[in-house]
């Protein structure tokens, strides 16, 4: 995978690392982008992932990793500026637009992203996907929540239990 050209300021050309998905696809990406992952950062600081070695990610498939790296590449410049305190309003608005669009995805993909962001410890992405799921839950009744998240319809026993719980705080959301 080709990364956009941008120097990291120290070595002229940006340092690249290779990540290997669970289905053995190799992704070449700037070290700065991959370092958004706390998990990868240590390996990269130790000089890993360069050359022909590559860092294997047995928990992340290629479709998910591709999506994760899309996020990392977009957010790397801002992260390099220490959370981008000097970023312009335009830059921030652009990132926000990207984020909104980024999580506008199928639920199975969203689930894979949640797990990958967790495993790779990418803080910004973890927040983004958790917030997305929270937004899907907000303002809904217990039954609507179940349907939105694709849970099977409750059994009669589960329904009875739900009804009992709804007596407690039901007045707050009905």
């Amino acid at each position: 995978m080709a990364a956009p050209e941008s120097g990291d300021g120290n070595n002229g050309a940006a340092r690249m690392v290779t990540l290997i998905s669970s289905d053995n696809t190799r992704f070449e990406v700037e070290a700065a982008a991959a370092s958004l992952s706390q998990t990868l950062q240590l390996t990269i600081l130790d000089g890993g992932g360069g050359g022909g070695d590559g860092i294997p990610l047995p928990n992340v498939d290629s479709a998910t990793l591709s999506k994760v790296l899309e996020y990392c590449i977009k957010h790397a410049p801002a992260a390099a500026n220490g959370g981008a305190p000097n970023a312009t309003a335009v830059d921030r608005a652009e990132l926000e637009r990207f984020d909104n669009e980024f999580v506008n995805i199928d639920q199975s993909v969203l689930y894979s992203l949640i797990m990958a962001a967790h495993n790779l410890e990418i803080e910004g992405l973890q927040s983004l996907v958790a917030k997305k799921v929270a937004d899907m839950i907000k303002g809904k009744s217990p039954m609507e929540i179940r349907r939105t998240l694709g849970f099977p319809d409750p059994t009669p026993e589960e329904q009875a239990e739900m009804n009992a719980h709804m007596l407690e705080y039901g007045w707050a959301y009905e």
Binding site: K138, M143, I145, F151, E168
Partner: peptide, 15 residues
Amino acid sequence: RLPPCSLAASRCARK
């Protein structure tokens, strides 16, 4: 991340 109303609803959604 949910407001209290949504938490109250979520509490009933699953055991």
